[in-house]
């Protein structure tokens, strides 16, 4: 009887092979081709100062965004985890609500605020300070990343803190630890899986986004996501575009591997 049922998964397995695995193989194939034959030109072109700079800027911004989300998000998660059950649920709901709102609209929402004739500048003018260029800067892109992704940092950490056994903290106190020690030696290490999740959930979309640079960054080819988009949709150089994509995938893969080294628990889970 067992054997009859596992056939139910085969249709999807076939579909998955065609629509999930095959496309990725196509990209890899494209990345190593030029005019129909094998070529490393795509990769060679990428490893030039012009394009490497784009990669580094993307990494730079993504790391900054992740750090901000972590340094702001962790304390907030901690504070929320200390609330009582009903309030905690309400706060979690409030935190999740924005995630269901359209990404584009959320990002776009900063334009009226950051613009030259926007809210912030109107306030600055009213106080007597001059206008500041907020929009179309790297800062705006960074803000967009943090704004969109900070719930993805807070919620996993909160989830881990929530499930934490408070007996461990009691035990540590019982053994003479003060608050600082309790935090650094007990709470922080135990919440590590949540931190790892949070980091990957913020870093990945940040490093690969192309929407935020367009809407808040002014549409210049600032980041690697924009580069890929341009190659595919405007320039039409799919081979180069694929090479860049493969490099992006490698960046993400390496990040995941590095992160999983810190998260022994997750390895056990999988």
């Amino acid at each position: 009887m067992k054997n009859r049922f596992n056939r139910y998964a085969w249709p999807y397995a076939l579909w998955a092979g065609l629509i999930i695995v095959l496309p990725l193989l196509v990209i890899v194939a494209f990345s190593f081709t030029k005019d129909g034959s094998f070529s490393l030109d795509g990769y060679k072109l990428f490893f030039t100062p012009l394009y490497l700079q784009v990669l580094f800027k993307s990494l730079d911004l993504a790391v900054k965004a992740t750090l901000i989300c972590l340094l702001v998000g962790y304390p907030i998660a901690l504070l929320i985890s200390r609330e009582d059950s009903r309030r905690k649920n309400t706060l979690m709901l409030l935190l999740m609500l924005p995630m269901w709102i359209n990404f584009l609209l959320k990002t776009y929402a900063w334009r009226p605020i950051l613009g030259n004739t926007g809210l912030l500048n109107s306030i600055l003018e009213a106080i007597g300070l001059g206008k500041v260029q907020f929009l179309y800067t790297e800062g705006a892109v960074l803000l967009g990343m943090v704004y969109n992704f900070i719930p993805f940092m807070i919620l996993p950490i909160l989830s881990v803190l929530d499930k934490m056994d408070y007996k461990l903290i009691e035990a540590a106190r019982d053994l003479g630890a003060d608050n600082r020690r309790v935090f650094f030696k007990v709470i922080l290490p135990l919440s590590l899986p949540g931190i790892i999740s949070g980091i990957s959930l913020v870093f990945m979309p940040s490093v690969s986004t192309f929407i935020i640079p367009v809407i808040l960054g002014g549409g210049q080819d600032m980041l690697i996501g924009n580069l890929i988009e341009r190659q595919f949709l405007k320039v039409g150089n799919w081979n180069f575009g694929s090479s860049i994509s493969v490099i992006l995938m490698l960046v993400i893969l390496s990040t995941m591997i590095i992160l999983s080294l810190f998260d022994r628990e997750k390895r056990g889970e999988t």
Binding site: V26, I27, P205, I228, E229, S245, L248
Partner: peptide, 8 residues
């Protein structure tokens, strides 16, 4: 990332 899935 969405982008990779999209272009693949």
């Amino acid at each position: 990332p969405d982008l990779v899935t999209a272009i693949s």
